[in-house]
Design a protein around this nucleic acid. Structure first.
Lengths: 335, 335
DNA sequence: GATTATTATGCAACCGATTGCACGCTTTCT
DNA sequence: AGAAAGCGTGCAATCGGTTGCATAATAATC
């Protein structure tokens, strides 16, 4: 039913090869045949089959976009940017949702079956081994928002979470808080581990300042809210909290307000991510901004590069973060 | 490099056909050959190429998931459910982001090139003609969250937005509000048009009650907030607002609070969608719930059915909505 | 204008599967 | 035991393109 290359060839009075070459960038075709072919194609409404083409060239232009973050609104922006970025480069995002799975095997299998040109794992919670499973299967992979080790197992594009933890600690110290705490995401998330470690490490440099740590069950508003409620019920909350993600901060904020505490007067709060909501006037969250756009753009570039030249060793590309001062920490002057 | 069917056949000492049949549901293979083939496949780590298979069967198991809603957090849940639902049925979501485009031509072309088995347009703002472009190109299509006309042009799964507008109106009337308003999304969104029409229609039944209408520029927090600020600045706000979406309500709520007005004492608010945040204690938004899960599940079923049997005429499947009473409308008793 | 270098084109094999058809073998029935 | 029916298997064509190679056509060179 659909128009094939052969149909076009027949109509244009040329060989199938000529037609194929007309649609292949940089192939050798004379202006006259090209014109004939293009006219015939136009008349017939021809459209090359990406499948057939992929079968012989080995390239599908399909990029697996693998994630388990379907509850953090920040990731809506992440998906938005990834899909647009990929589309702009003529690539197609094949979305893989592994909310239910912890084992990469299924995703690896399916992306290999479709012979995806590359894979982007977009998650701040998955361990490096997860992304490596794709690499082991021969798929070019980039872990966006992943953990960067000195000797990365796979390409990583993201931020230095340990340093970010330190930044948060410094911000709290600068404001004069003396009993601070880290309210992290799930303890299994690498991002939380690293941010927590950086935070604790920096605080340890300051004798007289104490830091505690606890964890929400997920990176979600509800979990942040529940954890803060637990902390409040347990009594004696810290003077200021570094939350592992803005969603946790905002959940915590709502718990604090419900408890009749005011921020930053009674309790200080610094978040992470600078999601859209953080800037709302009635939230106005002090937070640490990670450059999502740059990360995504770099991740796409890197996966494309790797697909073209699988040779190069794992690279970690980290972007600096920035503290965004708003209204949930008391001013240093007031300390 | 990768293991092919032929390799397995050779190793198992059978013909390629035998191997293919082993992996084809319901094909005729003897137990002995099947065992041989399975062992050989196992040893070689064979994995059928979805591309090659698609080329000969004509089925790719690829479903285009087309949307332009990448700024409303509700859609994160929508994507989550769609991807999981598709994966459970052995289908793969090929995500198409048309935030920038208003013309379906590009999406149609690319989904045809990949010969997607079907397309789901997930959007409450696109006109029916958009979805029809896919149908015209021969792609089975279902418009989820779309507008249902008496004689639909394509399959639609969603809700009766006009009736929802009436529900909202009834809720406001029941609370005794006399000057009400509809704060809709973009005027071009079909969902807003219909909700507004239902709302106005119902209010018109009640002499003495007046309704006005205005529009936010997008379905987003910021837009809702900005529009409410504009209304407040213009003076004399309505007694209660029906917002075309929870994100608008929550944006509006923040504008009201900033202005020192309290809800529901000074201004009543009813939203639409019942997104997760609507239930937060410090928001506690009265809203109208649309059954997202059922809609998504039905949309997937319908697109699969249509792919198997393209014959059947366009069908509209609508689900009832429900008013969720929380705390942003004054109680009827108090009227 | 003859000769060489270059560019265009077609042929045919191939990418990795599926499937209609024909044939051989085992069952089943009379 | 012989015929009819049924199952299992392999052959070969096909899905819709791509591409190396050989050759034909054109351009460049002297």
């Amino acid at each position: 039913m659909p128009v094939t290359l052969k149909d076009v060839a027949e109509r244009a009075g040329v060989s199938p090869s000529a037609v194929s070459r007309t649609f292949t960038e940089g192939a050798s075709v004379s202006a006259r045949t090209r014109a004939k072919v293009e006219r015939a194609a136009e008349e017939l409404g021809y459209m090359p089959s990406a499948l057939a083409s992929a079968l012989s060239t080995g390239r599908t232009k399909l990029i697996g976009l693998v994630s388990n973050n379907f509850h953090n609104p920040v990731f809506l922006e992440v998906f938005d940017r990834f899909t647009r970025g990929l589309q702009e480069r003529g690539l197609r995002p094949l979305l893989v949702n592994l909310s239910d799975e912890t084992d990469p095997a299924n995703s690896v299998r399916m992306l290999r079956q479709y012979s995806a040109d590359g894979v982007i794992v977009a998650s701040s919670t998955l361990p490096p081994s997860f992304a490596r499973a794709f690499a082991d299967a021969g798929l070019p992979v980039v872990h966006a928002f992943g953990r960067a080790t000195p000797t990365p197992e796979v390409h990583v594009v993201g931020i230095d979470n340990v340093e970010c933890g330190r930044m948060a600690a410094r911000a709290l110290v600068a404001c004069g808080y003396r009993r601070v705490a880290f309210l992290g995401g799930p303890a299994s998330a690498t991002s939380t581990q690293d941010r927590g470690a950086g935070f604790a490490g920096e605080i340890a440099q300051h004798p007289g300042i104490t830091a505690t740590e606890s964890h929400a069950e997920a990176y979600s508003f509800e979990a942040g809210r529940a954890e803060m409620q637990r902390l409040l019920a347990a009594g004696k909350p810290a003077e200021a909290y570094f939350c592992g993600d803005d969603v946790l901060s905002i959940g915590a904020l709502s718990a604090l307000e419900d408890a009749g505490l005011s921020v930053p007067e009674d309790v200080g709060l610094i978040g992470f991510n600078d999601m859209e909501m953080a800037g709302w006037q009635n939230i106005n969250l002090t937070t640490i901004r990670q450059p999502i756009l740059e990360i995504i753009s770099a991740a796409i570039d890197l996966v494309v590069t790797t697909a073209d030249d699988p040779g190069l060793g794992p690279k970690a590309r980290l972007f600096p973060c920035q503290t965004v001062e708003r209204g949930t920490l008391r001013t240093p002057a007031a300390s």
